[in-house]
Amino acid sequence: MDVFMKGLSKAKEGVVAAAEKTKQGVAEAAGKTKEGVLYVGSKTKEGVVHGVATVAEKTKEQVTNVGGAVVTGVTAVAQKTVEGAGSIAAATGFVKKDQLGKNEEGAPQEGILEDMPVDPDNEAYEMPSEEGYQDYEPEA
């Protein structure tokens, strides 16, 4: 019985440690998101679009440190934060509304985080759909 109880105690310690790591990862992701939003706020009209992409990228980098179902929630929060940063930029006159959601080359930025393969159960990952990809044929 002692062996059984000791095993359960060790398992509990492992769960607590994993929860603490997840909590730490979420806190880091939130900190990076805040950094990115402050970065966007300090940019001029020309830099705002690039700044919004930076927020998304920093958040995406930190999301990889967070495991399990938390990833889905962090990704949703990050996307809403990026959308909010863009709205703030438009409201303050840093950028025109028609410039939001495009990178410096004018290509749409939507789907940055949505296409990231995420499995809350950590069982399997699927690649994003290939609808947006084109076949590449090298020139002879």
Rank of each mutant, 00 (worst) to 15 (best):
S87F: 06
S9Y: 13
A140P: 12
E28T: 06
E130R: 04
K23A: 03
G36L: 04
I88P: 02
G25W: 11
V15H: 01
A85S: 04
A85G: 06
G25C: 09
E139D: 10
E123Y: 05
K80F: 15
Q99K: 02
A53T: 15
A69C: 08
G36W: 12
A140R: 11
D119K: 02
V55W: 15
T64I: 13
A30T: 04
A11E: 00
V37G: 01
E13C: 05
T75D: 04
T54H: 09
P108A: 04
E123R: 04
Q109K: 12
D115G: 15
V82E: 02
A69R: 10
P108G: 03
P138L: 05
G31Y: 14
A78P: 02
L113N: 01
G93K: 03
K60T: 06
A69F: 13
A69M: 04
P138H: 05
V37E: 00
M5Q: 00
V63W: 15
G132Y: 09
V95Q: 09
K60D: 00
E13M: 08
A17R: 07
E139K: 09
T59F: 15
E57V: 06
V70C: 04
I88Q: 03
V71N: 02
V37Q: 00
A90D: 06
V40P: 00
T44G: 04
Q62Y: 05
A56D: 00
Y39C: 04
K97V: 15
E126V: 09
K97Y: 02
Q109M: 04
Y136G: 06
A69N: 05
E104H: 06
L113P: 10
P128M: 12
V82G: 03
S9W: 15
E35V: 05
V26D: 00
K6M: 06
I88V: 05
G73V: 13
F94P: 03
E20A: 15
P108I: 05
V40W: 03
Q79D: 03
D135P: 04
A140Q: 07
S129W: 05
T44V: 09
A85R: 03
P117F: 09
V48S: 01
A56L: 14
K12M: 14
I112P: 09
A91Q: 07
K10L: 13
L8Y: 02
K10F: 08
K97C: 13
T44M: 15
N65Y: 09
A17F: 10
V15N: 00
V48D: 00
Y133T: 08
E57N: 08
V74R: 01
K45I: 13
A90P: 03
K6V: 02
E61P: 02
V37K: 01
I112N: 08
K21N: 03
K21F: 15
K60W: 09
D115I: 05
G93S: 07
P117G: 10
E123G: 10
M1Q: 00
V49D: 01
G51A: 12
K10T: 04
G25A: 15
T59D: 00
K80C: 07
K96V: 14
L8W: 14
S9T: 02
G106D: 04
V37C: 08
Q79K: 10
E83P: 04
Q99N: 09
E110V: 06
K45R: 14
V82L: 13
A85V: 11
T72N: 13
T81L: 09
G31P: 00
G84W: 08
N122D: 10
E137H: 06
S42E: 12
I88K: 03
D115K: 07
K32F: 09
A56P: 01
E131N: 09
S42P: 01
K12F: 03
Q79V: 06
E105F: 07
T72K: 07
E105K: 02
G7P: 01
M116L: 13
Y125D: 11
K10N: 04
V74W: 13
Q109F: 11
M127I: 08
V15W: 07
S129L: 06
G31W: 12
V74Q: 01
L100E: 08
A69E: 02
D121E: 11
A89W: 14
V63N: 01
K34H: 04
K97Q: 15
E126R: 09
K58D: 01
G86Q: 13
G68F: 02
G68N: 15
A53R: 04
A18N: 00
A27T: 03
V77Q: 02
E131M: 03
D121G: 11
D98M: 05
M116H: 11
E20C: 13
Q62F: 08
S87E: 13
G41S: 12
A85K: 02
Q99D: 10
G86D: 04
E28D: 05
T44L: 10
S42K: 13
G86V: 13
F4M: 02
E137R: 12
K10D: 01
F94S: 05
V26A: 02
K34G: 02
G73D: 02
A78I: 13
G132M: 10
E28I: 05
F4V: 02
F94Y: 09
N103H: 07
V55N: 00
T44F: 15
K32R: 09
F4E: 00
G41V: 10
D2E: 01
E139F: 12
K21M: 12
L100G: 10
I112F: 05
I112W: 09
A91V: 12
F94T: 05
T44Y: 14
K12T: 14
A76R: 10
T54S: 13
D115R: 04
G84Y: 13
G41H: 14
A11V: 15
A53Q: 08
D115V: 10
H50C: 09
G67Y: 04
N103A: 05
E46V: 07
V16M: 15
E130G: 13
V15M: 12
E46G: 15
K10E: 01
T75V: 13
V71Q: 03
K97A: 09
G51H: 11
K21W: 08
S87N: 12
E104C: 02
G73R: 06
E137T: 04
T72D: 12
K23P: 00
T33L: 06
V52S: 02
Y136P: 09
K34C: 06
K10V: 14
N65S: 13
A29S: 02
T59K: 01
G84M: 15
F4A: 00
D121M: 08
E104G: 08
T72G: 12
A91Y: 12
D121Q: 02
E139I: 11
T33I: 03
S129K: 05
K80A: 12
K23C: 12
Y39L: 07
V63M: 14
A107P: 07
P117V: 11
E137C: 06
A124H: 12
E83T: 07
G68M: 15
G84I: 13
A140M: 07
A29P: 00
A140W: 11
K97M: 10
K23M: 15
K43I: 14
D121C: 07
G101V: 09
G101N: 02
A53I: 12
V71L: 10
Q99S: 10
V74A: 08
E123T: 07
D119H: 12
L113W: 12
A69K: 08
Q79I: 08
G111M: 15
G31F: 15
G93Y: 07
S42I: 14
V55T: 02
A30V: 11
A78S: 03
F94G: 03
E13Y: 11
Q109I: 09
E46Y: 07
M127F: 12
F4R: 00
G84A: 15
N122S: 08
V48K: 01
I112C: 06
T72C: 08
K96S: 11
